[in-house]
Structures are given as structure tokens and as C-alpha cells.
Amino acid sequence: MFEQLPRNPGTALKLALVEDQRANLSAIERRAASLPARRSLKKEWQAAWLLRAIGLIDLTTLSGDDTPERVRRLCAKARNALREDLCIALGLSEPVHTGAVCVYPTMVATAVKALASTGIPVASVATGFPAGLMPLKLRLEEIRYCVGEGAAEIDIVVNRALIFAQDWPALYDEVRQMRDACGDAHMKTILATGDLKTLRNVARASMVCMMAGADFIKTSTGKEPVNATLPVGLVMTRAIRAYEEETGFMVGFKPAGGISSAKDALVWMAMMKEELGRRWLEPDLFRFGASSLLGDIERQIEHFVTGRYSAAMRHAVA
């Protein structure tokens, strides 16, 4: 077990450090292309990494037709993320659970009740998700509502217009107020990287959000045309490394949107280990934002146990 880390308190805005953030596109693309091309994990090693991946998932439902019953089913799957027969076959002494459950604000109370006494935190999106185009006063009030309903983690979205304008003091001020509104709840700051146009924007916005006190920086809402990509992940993880070198505080990372296969999860985990180290394979520093990923991981683990592939429909998430 790793010791609990001190929470990132944020720092004063250091514009020189923000402006110093660069992104060498060709080098980043070469590095990203090399990650999936390597020899993959096999057999018991793959199964062990996939078990680790389950504990890193923010099991998510963010659909317009969400209902309390759907959320309760999702929470039931989060509590018992791997089928009992597979747990027995692997020699596990207790059920495997996900890192968190992520829902809309109106579903927080339902999820909190369904996960009572499990230790699984409830995360809620907030601040006018997914666009964030609401008055700041209302965005802050939505955060307070989610915290009041019992959310332990808040996934906020930033105002992309401030990034396009390179108005870093205004972005810092908004995110700092959001951090204050979160109180003891941890704040994941969604950059919506698919909207940000350049990797340099991604790097600089990442640094500003960490300076403002983000506990995690997160790639996407899952609603943009392009969501989590390896080049974006490399830029954000290297910003995390630069922030730790500057301040001594470790900040988490959450890729979200488009990560649906066990193979994808292994590539992202390998990147985290190589870029930031083993400590970033724990749920307090790394999460997947995903809905269908768990089903494919369970399918791959069943193949390891039985030697046979089953149909994907046999591994429904909820």
C-alpha cells in the first residue's frame, strides 16, 4: 500500500512557467506511435494488469436518458466489477470494484445511497457539463449542490474561450473559485482537449489548472468529436511532471472518452508508468473515464481463465 499523498494546494499563478510550456508535435507523435507498437503483455501478466485497470475506472453514465434505476444497476456493477466465478478462478478473496462511479448532479444522491458503506466514491460532473457555458455564479452553485448531495469528486469543465484568448489570469481565477467551492471533494479539471486546437494550448491550460489547485487534470468530456488521444496524454502527463518538479505536489490524470478496449487500457497504463512512474498506477493518481471498457476487460479475463472468447453481449456493464 502507498501512503496517502498531500493534496495539491495550488500555487500563485506563474505566467512565466505557463508560457514556457511547449509541445514538439513531431516528437510527441513519434513517441505516441511507439506505445501501441510494442510487444504486449501476455497471460498472467496481462490478467494482473487488467485487474489493476478495473480499480482505475470511473464507471460512468452521462446520457440524456439516465434514470435512477440505471444508476443503481451501474453501482451494483461497480461493487462487483468482475463476475464471481472469475474471481474464484483467479483466487481472489474479495470482490473487485471500480475506482468510482461518475454521474450527473441529479443522480448523485441515488449513487451515494447505492454505494453506502462500500468505500467507492461518487464523482459528479458539474459547471454546466459538457460545454461549461453558464454564468460563473451558477457553475459554482452547481458544484456546491453536488457536494451537498454527497459527491466526493467533482469533474468540472473549463471555459474554453479563456484558453483561446490566452487569458490565463481569468482561467486561473475561475478554476481557483471552483476548487474553493469543492471544499473537501477532489476536483478533476476537464480541458476538453478535442476543442483546444493545439497541443501547446493543452500544455498551458494543464499548468494553469494545476496552479489553481486541480487534484486531477482530465482530457475530455466524452462529448467532443475527438476525446482522449495518446499525444494529448503525453502532453498532459509531462505537464504533471513539470508541475511536480516545480512544486513537489503530485497531480492525477484522467483520460476519458473513446477508451473502450482492454488493449487501449494497457497502452495508457504503460504510458503512465513510463512517463510518471509506478505511483501513477494507483486510483488516487490515475483514472479512466469509461462506460464500456469494463465489459471488454471482463471478457479478456474470462479468456485467460477459460481459454475461450465469449460474445461481448455476455459482459454487459449494467
Rank of each mutant, 00 (worst) to 15 (best):
V122I: 05
T61V: 09
A48D: 14
R72D: 12
D58R: 01
A78I: 09
T106Q: 10
A123H: 01
L59N: 09
L115P: 12
T61E: 08
V112K: 14
A48C: 07
P68F: 05
R22L: 01
A78F: 10
S117Q: 10
D66L: 06
I28Q: 00
E69K: 13
D85P: 02
E84G: 01
W49Y: 08
A78R: 06
V125C: 10
D85A: 06
L115I: 08
L59W: 06
A76P: 01
V71R: 05
A123L: 05
L86Q: 01
E44M: 00
S26E: 09
A78N: 12
K42L: 11
D58I: 07
S40Y: 08
L86K: 02
P36Q: 06
L115H: 12
V101C: 01
E19K: 10
A33V: 01
A23C: 06
V101G: 09
P105I: 03
S124G: 07
V112I: 04
L51A: 06
E44K: 03
K77D: 11
R30Y: 02
D58K: 04
T118D: 11
G64S: 11
P121Q: 02
S40N: 11
V108L: 04
N80C: 03
R83A: 14
R22H: 03
A78Q: 10
T118H: 02
D85T: 12
L92A: 12
A16K: 13
L51F: 00
I57C: 02
A78K: 01
R52Y: 04
L25K: 03
T67D: 14
L15R: 06
A81Y: 09
V71G: 13
E44R: 07
A76H: 10
A16M: 05
V101W: 00
R72T: 08
R30L: 14
I57L: 09
L90K: 00
S26Y: 03
K14I: 06
L35E: 05
A32S: 03
E69L: 07
L41D: 14
L35S: 00
L56V: 03
L15E: 09
L15T: 02
R73W: 09
D66G: 13
L62T: 15
V96Y: 04
K42Y: 14
K43D: 15
R38F: 06
P95S: 12
L92E: 06
A32Q: 00
L13H: 10
L59Q: 11
H97I: 05
T106F: 09
I54H: 04
N80Y: 07
L17P: 01
S40Q: 13
S40M: 13
G119E: 12
K113A: 11
G64A: 15
P121S: 00
T98W: 03
V108F: 08
E29I: 03
D58E: 07
L41H: 09
T106E: 13
N24M: 01
E94M: 05
A109G: 05
S124A: 13
P105E: 12
S63Q: 13
W49K: 13
